[in-house]
Design a protein around this nucleic acid. Sequence first.
DNA 1: GCCACAATCAGACCAAAGTCGAAGGCCTGA
DNA 2: TCAGGCCTTCGACTTTGGTCTGATTGTGGC
Lengths: 213, 213
Amino acid sequence: MVTAPSFLIADDHPMVRDALASALGQAFPGAGIAMAATLGQVQAALEREPETDALLLDLDMPGMEGLTGIALLRSEYPIVPIIVVSAAREPIVVRRAYEFGASAYIDKSASLEEIVGTVGAVLEGEIFAPPEAELPDSFAQRAAQLTPQQWRVLALMIQGDQNKQIAHKLGVGEATVKAHVTVILRKLGVRSRTQAVIEARGLAIPAAEPVRP
Amino acid sequence: MVTAPSFLIADDHPMVRDALASALGQAFPGAGIAMAATLGQVQAALEREPETDALLLDLDMPGMEGLTGIALLRSEYPIVPIIVVSAAREPIVVRRAYEFGASAYIDKSASLEEIVGTVGAVLEGEIFAPPEAELPDSFAQRAAQLTPQQWRVLALMIQGDQNKQIAHKLGVGEATVKAHVTVILRKLGVRSRTQAVIEARGLAIPAAEPVRP
DNA sequence: GCCACAATCAGACCAAAGTCGAAGGCCTGA
DNA sequence: TCAGGCCTTCGACTTTGGTCTGATTGTGGC
């Protein structure tokens, strides 16, 4: 690390942001630190500063919808290492975070020293996104085939948006959105938008028991 | 407030604890600040210092089991005002927190200034009603209006079934299913099948919430 | 008996979802 | 440089979803 590193801290809780920022500022003097509270702000910040050395990402942020946000960011900015900072300790969440290309996973219950240490390790390249090893036939594997634009469409589908709304938000025609949806459904191996939403939400919500009438 | 106040901060995340402690330390110079990471530690701390002026309590802590921890603490130490600090924004959680005797409810997304302000208000004896005093009808409330057959239809919708499949499984015509779906959507206050599935799955799976810090 | 309501269905109708084919832009390797 | 592949875009078309009107049947309560 020749020059001072630059960080992007993404968390919707000001407390957490401040705590991380001050800890990183002390551990890495002169470091550039940007903040984001929503997925949209993360994207905007990465657009402005594509050379960010590490993104500290909270999973529970507006617009993230769980793990789908990681995949979206990874497909848009594959160079930026993502360090997931989450309170979720479920092994399946951790594993899927890695499947989607996270460089590290830090439990929010960890001490600031541990967090700083992990960040440093990522900066040194000691920890990197594990290669897309042979994964079981999981939904995550199928989902990894989606293109950036398709992820954007899926992210909005998951929020319950209709094709028309998605088209407006993405600035494209409704026909385009429909085409993307068609490809998404085929790649995910489902037959309808509703099933796609259920599966994709399952990424953020493991252990989904069917409702009994 | 003649003397400096004493606080007990209960949160299992060191980051949050430190952030709250430093904010309160600055806002209330000379204040006594104790920490706790589990329900047991909260009880021990209150045993040692029954004159605590305010307990800042996180809902998602080991041993808390959600809102029942509030009731337990209230029954053991009725004089200690409890300020719930949680990431859960669900109206029902907020409402129940008040039902169990919380003096205030702070969203973790709030700024430190807001938090300090709320704590100060509680110290002054202002147990003020939350902005969410007029709670909107919850999804669960709306869902309770469904008839048994409508529940069956919704259960199959949640599994991703199409109207035709639902009709076959229930042994009725597709027109009937459509009629039910129309009523379900209206009762749930959503505009599409996909939105209904999203809402209903969020209701049936509270396991989705523990992911939040 | 009367009333309210759940459940069933038909037919018409409009909106949304989804499929198919095709065009243009961009990158890469021959 | 050109061919081939991929992403993105879109229009035209088909299918499904959802609403509305209206109707029949059965059930339980007053």
